[in-house]
Design a protein around this nucleic acid. Structure first.
Lengths: 197, 197
DNA sequence: GGAACAAATGACTGATTAGTCAATCATGGG
DNA sequence: CCCATGATTGACTAATCAGTCATTTGTTCC
């Protein structure tokens, strides 16, 4: 009984609903997924969904906030251990790709919904605050003169988007590729264009 | 009268419907846009839409085919004039970015719908055939030993996706940026990582 | 056992959906 | 002038939607 209560705390209805929404939104889109489908997938009644989220939009905003938070956390993993600028960038590079490959559903969700009109500007701004550390690392490298002189926005966008490109490659490949080798190759490619000398 | 007839041929109902669908799909998504809204935006009756497209999915497949065809055409522009491998790649690079910046609606459509479940595998395969020239150019460069030895898929994906990154940067910037300079910078960045030596 | 409270339920509603089709319209030939 | 043909129309339908709420179920105290 106590065991059941704990189980419920770990895999509660709210988490089940968020998980079902994540799966169905990525598979069928926001408007393409009905709240009834989400409830069914989560194994709860339709009314239960609206006990936890007052509207369907609330649900996707919560989901967005949670997924982006996870990504932000993963990106920072082990970042403090690295001293050189290149090592920091490479660590974030690997972290991004590892996260995407280990969490394909979350990755595809960010791909499809980051620039979607369903997510409120408020939530978006809230999430952006979590990523200032990335901007800081890049600015640090620029000030130290570690990179050729490109606009900061260009550097950040290329770094992030190229990482996502590699995740997509791995997810779409039939698994025959050597993941570590691809991460190494792709980092060399981008770093080679970025680094001074 | 004859004039009217010609006008109708140039801006016929079908084109109006496709244009309206392009606008609304990018703004509100596939399921988020009703056929009634598309008809209203196109200035036709709801029934007229179904004279030209038997289902809503037919409409988005047609749209996808048309937009991707335009992009493919634009990518090839002036490609025959270039002799060196670097010049060919740079030409396609500029072509991609120019196309995206001049056709933001079409660009955003490809961003949101290229990997969406609404578009049939048949249409997708049909479109892929239009892009073999890109694969051929890259393979040629690889065989000539113009690039460091990376997997072909990685090279192609990075080239294409980084181009899209630059388009996004330009579209999101408040217009203050120097477009030509950004194209030059970004090409240097990618080419610098790609080229041998 | 049972009172008190919260969590969960699912039948229900008014609004909206993709798609239909009988009626209307415009055009061009005889 | 009128009829034939094909394009266009919009009221209509069955299905589905997000969200509600009166009721039932589960838990915790005494």
């Amino acid at each position: 009984m106590g065991c059941w209560t704990m189980e419920k705390q770990v895999h509660g209805k709210k988490e089940a609903i968020i998980g079902a929404a994540l799966k169905l939104f990525t598979e069928r889109g926001f408007y393409g997924t009905s709240t009834a489908q989400i409830s069914r997938e989560a194994g709860v009644a339709t009314g239960t969904l609206f006990n936890y989220f007052s509207t369907k939009e609330d649900l996707i905003n919560d989901l967005y906030y949670e997924v982006k938070g996870n990504l932000s956390q993963s990106l920072r993993e082990g970042l403090g251990d690295e001293s050189s600028f290149q090592a920091k960038i490479k660590r974030m590079w690997s972290n991004l790709i590892d996260w995407g490959v280990s969490n394909p559903q979350e990755f595809l969700f960010t791909e499809h919904f980051c620039s979607s009109p369903y997510i409120s500007k408020l939530t978006r701004d809230e999430v952006l605050k979590e990523y200032t550390f990335f901007r800081d690392v890049v600015r640090e490298g620029m000030e130290e003169g570690q990179m050729k002189e490109f606009p900061q926005d260009l550097i950040m966008s290329i770094l992030f988007d190229s990482g996502k490109t590699v995740v997509r490659l791995i997810l779409n490949s039939p698994g025959t590729q050597d993941k570590e080798q691809l991460i190494e190759n792709s980092f060399q490619l981008i770093w080679g264009g970025l680094a001074k000398e």
